[in-house]
Write a protein that binds this DNA or RNA. Structure first.
Lengths: 154, 154
DNA sequence: CCCATCTCAGGTCAACTGACATCC
DNA sequence: CGGATGTCAGTTCACCTGAGATGG
C-alpha cells in the first residue's frame, strides 16, 4: 500500500500532461492533413486567426500565440514569401504592419478548415456531442483566464 | 447575415485550437519552472513516466509520445549524458535497452513534481475542483482512444 | 529472411536571446 | 527620451528522413 493518493490531489498524471497527450497526436495528425496545402499546423492556425480578424499585427499575434515577436515575425515572413498573406503599414502608425490574407491564403484556409473539421470529428469520436460541448466550454474558460492573466507568455 | 453557424457544428474555434491554446502557455510556464533543474518540460515528462514505469525501452516511449524512435533516442541520450537515467540491456533480448532513473534523476522528478503541482493549481484556478475532475476525465477518454487507435503516431 | 530495436548523419522547423533601427 | 514594433544574426531544441548495424 502506498500513500500516493494522499500526496496527489488527483489520481494519476497531471492535467498538464493530459493536455499535452491530446495535443501531440492532434498536431501530428493535422500536420499530415495540411501537408498538401504546403503549410504546417501552426502556420494554418495563424492563417485562420488572420482570416477571422484581419488587420492584426505581428505583435498582436505573438501575444495571442505565446511566442516572442521575433518568432511570429519569422513565421509571417515565410507565409508572406509564399504569397498567402500581405503586410501593409498602418495608416496612423507606420511602425505597425497590418496583416491581410491574399486570395491564395483564403483558399488554403477554406480547404484546410474543411479537412480539419473531418479530423476533429474523428479525433473526438470517443466523446458524445454533449461531452464535446462540455470539454470545449471548460477549455475556453481556461484559455480566457490564462490569456487575461498573461500566464505562460514569452 | 452569414451561414457560418450552419456550416460549423460548434461556435468559434476548433477543439484542436482550444487544446493547443491551453497547451502553449502551460508549456512555456513549465519550461520556466523546470529551468533551475536543467531540464525542459518534455525531458521532465519523460523522466516522470520512467519514474512511474521503470524498464520501458526507447521504442516504448517513442510510441507513447508520438515521436519517431530516433527522436526519443536522442532525447534519452541527452538525459543519460547528464546522469539522470541509465540504459541497460534486457536480459532476454540484447537489442532492447531498459531504462531506469539514477538517484539524481529521481531527485529532479521529485522536486519538479512539487513545483509542477503548484503550477497546476494556479493555471486551472479558473475551474472548480469538480470542473477540473470533469476536464481530466474527458481528456483521459480522448487520450486513451487516440492511443488505442494509434492516431497521430509518427 | 523478416522484424524490431537502436545508432549515425544530415536536415528542418519553430522557438529562443541579443543587438539594433524606427516610429510615436 | 521611453515604449512599442519590427528586423537581422546566431543558437538551441525537438522533431524529421534516410541509411545502416545487430539481435531474435
Amino acid at each position: 500500500m502506498s500513500t500516493e493518493h494522499l500526496a496527489e490531489p488527483f489520481n494519476g498524471p497531471s492535467t498538464t500532461y493530459l493536455v499535452s497527450q491530446v495535443h501531440h497526436p492532434l498536431r501530428n495528425f493535422s500536420d499530415a492533413i495540411l501537408k498538401p496545402y504546403g503549410v504546417t499546423g501552426i502556420q494554418f492556425t495563424v492563417l485562420s486567426v488572420v482570416a477571422h480578424r484581419e488587420g492584426l499585427s505581428s505583435a498582436d499575434l505573438s501575444r495571442r500565440f505565446y511566442v516572442t515577436p521575433q518568432s511570429m515575425g519569422q513565421l509571417l515572413a515565410t507565409l508572406e514569401e509564399r504569397g498567402l498573406l500581405e503586410r501593409k503599414e498602418d495608416s496612423n502608425n507606420r511602425r505597425i504592419l497590418r496583416i491581410t490574407l491574399t486570395s491564395a491564403g483564403r483558399e488554403v484556409v477554406e480547404a484546410g478548415t474543411r479537412d480539419m473539421a473531418k479530423l476533429e470529428e474523428d479525433a473526438f469520436s470517443s466523446l458524445s456531442p454533449k461531452e464535446i460541448k462540455t470539454l470545449r466550454s471548460l477549455l475556453r474558460t481556461v484559455v480566457d483566464d490564462l490569456r487575461s492573466r498573461r500566464i505562460g507568455s514569452a
